[in-house]
């Protein structure tokens, strides 16, 4: 396998007494499109949230782009907990699309997309606007730049959220159930955008979804997570058609029938 851009090395995550991830080993190669599937509560969101630095880890090491995410190297070569400056630098490599979009409701679509490029990357306003308009064009919403989120459908909002994440030019884009909050008739338009990204970009993509058909279409690899560790993984055509583990078979039977 080529150099991993993401590597979880014996990562544990506990919330108080509850152990959510337990010795998780998991890697993603540069440019790879990986889908994570698994039952509710198995730790899928937690994996993405750890990568986005929204949740810290209890044990182990997470590597992103060759550097530890939650640690930094001390003078003597050992790892010490990451400083905010280190986290800030590492976060720049990642972007995230949330289930509930999380657009800023008091800002226009354009402001939603340009705010961070201007404030964080130091782009000039015209530069940021050019970038935003290009991305809005890509997600098919060029005419909506001056609208507010509440004036748009959920599908449109999620497409804006994707544009907003892309405006930061991340190397890795995380999607946590991006279509789960949408009315069924709006799922397609969002999937269409993600599909285009998957096919046309060298972006590394990590997607959590319950849409098995979609997962099959766009992923290079599918990981079945259960109780906080990777239970089975493989190319979608293998994992979906001939799962090896009984638990994977059971899970797939349940979701495909449901």
């Amino acid at each position: 396998m080529t150099d991993p851009i993401i590597r979880f090395d014996k990562v544990a995550k506990r919330f108080g007494d509850i152990s959510v991830l337990d010795g998780l080993d998991f890697t993603v190669s540069r440019g790879e499109k990986v889908t994570i599937i698994g039952p509710s509560g198995s730790g899928k969101s937690t994996i993405l949230r750890i990568l986005m630095t929204l949740e810290d880890i209890s044990d182990g090491t997470v590597w992103v782009d060759g550097e530890p995410l939650w640690h930094e190297k001390a003078g003597d070569g050992t790892l010490k907990p990451a400083s905010e400056a280190h986290l800030h630098k590492m976060r720049g490599k990642l972007g995230m699309v949330f289930q509930s979009f999380n657009l800023f409701p008091h800002m226009t679509v354009l402001r939603n997309i340009t705010e961070a490029p201007v404030q964080v990357l130091g782009l000039s306003k015209p530069e940021a606007k050019d970038r935003a308009m290009g991305l809005l064009d890509m997600v098919g919403l060029s005419d909506h730049a001056e609208k507010y989120p509440h004036q748009m459908s959920g599908g449109q909002q999620q497409r804006v959220a994707i544009a907003r994440a892309l405006a930061m030019r991340p190397d890795i884009l995380l999607f946590d159930e991006p279509t789960s909050a949408l009315d069924p008739e709006l799922v397609g338009e969002v999937q269409e955008v993600i599909r285009k990204l998957a096919y046309e970009h060298d972006l590394t993509m990590l997607l959590v979804t319950h849409e098995m058909r979609f997962a099959r279409e766009i992923s290079d690899r599918v990981c079945f997570i259960d109780k906080g560790s990777v239970h089975e993984e493989g190319a979608p055509e293998d994992l979906f058609t001939a799962p090896q583990q009984p638990r994977t078979q059971e899970f797939l039977r349940a979701v495909l029938d449901g």
């Binding site: 720049g92 961070a116 404030q119």
Partner: peptide, 27 residues
């Protein structure tokens, strides 16, 4: 102000003070 707003701001790498003044206070 919903937690998702803080999380979106953090994912975009906005500084905590900026997040407070530009995202939290206006809402």
């Amino acid at each position: 102000v919903p937690r998702g707003q803080h999380e979106a701001a953090r994912a975009l790498n906005l500084a905590p003070r900026r997040t407070f003044s530009r995202i939290v206070v206006p809402q």
